[in-house]
């Protein structure tokens, strides 16, 4: 617990600078929420017919209410290429297929991953939360910092394209098969 608190403080300090760590527990959540919102910049979805150019980016959260709240807070005033974010709390893994990205923790991880496999959905799992199953992006804590593994092969299955800039930051990267 002390360790987590210290990590949270450091990360908060790194992200917010002089901003005081108001809620230590949510700070790690906050970092992850920020990261999630930022992953969108480095992922290219296959074009979807009928989608407007300024259609909101749909971020779905399964089994993590606090995180959803935090994510909502982070993206509330953010836009990406003019597109706003739409944070949805969903219960059914099958529903995740309609999302651009889905953050899933807990019991529904594997179901969700199975449900969106082969679909253009950026799956984000969280090793820091104790889950072993990995989505395209899998958070971990390395050197008291939030880092992530990337499974580009899985991304390729869904037709997603991961920016090399993002790939270069992965703790590990599972490469997509050479085309």
């Amino acid at each position: 617990m002390r360790l987590a608190s210290a990590i949270a403080m450091l990360v908060t300090a790194a992200l917010m600078g002089a901003a005081p760590p108001a809620r230590a527990q949510t700070s790690e959540e906050s970092v992850k929420a920020t990261f999630v919102s930022r992953f969108i910049s480095f992922v290219t979805w296959p074009p979807i017919e009928g989608d407007a150019a300024n259609a909101p980016v749909t971020l779905c959260v399964i089994g993590a209410e606090p995180f959803a709240n935090e994510l909502e807070r982070v993206v509330s005033d953010q836009r990406i290429n003019g597109r706003p974010f739409d944070v949805r709390r969903i219960a059914e893994p099958a529903s995740a297929a309609r999302c651009n990205a889905v953050y899933v923790v807990g019991a529904r991880v594997e179901d969700t991953l199975r449900a969106v496999r082969g679909r253009p959905v950026l799956t984000i799992t969280d090793g820091a939360a104790g889950d072993d199953a990995r989505g395209i992006i899998h958070f971990v804590i390395v050197d008291r910092r939030v880092r992530f593994h990337i499974d580009d092969a899985r991304a390729a299955e869904g037709g997603l394209f991961m920016s090399s800039r993002l790939l270069s930051l992965g703790v590990s990267v599972r490469r997509r098969p050479a085309s």
């Binding site: 990360v11 992200l15 930022r38 910049s41 910092r145 939030v146 992530f148 800039r165 993002l166 930051l169």
Partner: peptide, 14 residues
């Protein structure tokens, strides 16, 4: 450009 991802994801090493 080269540090944009590092900055966005606070990757000091990168």
């Amino acid at each position: 450009q080269s540090v944009v991802a590092s900055v966005m994801f606070s990757d000091q090493v990168a």
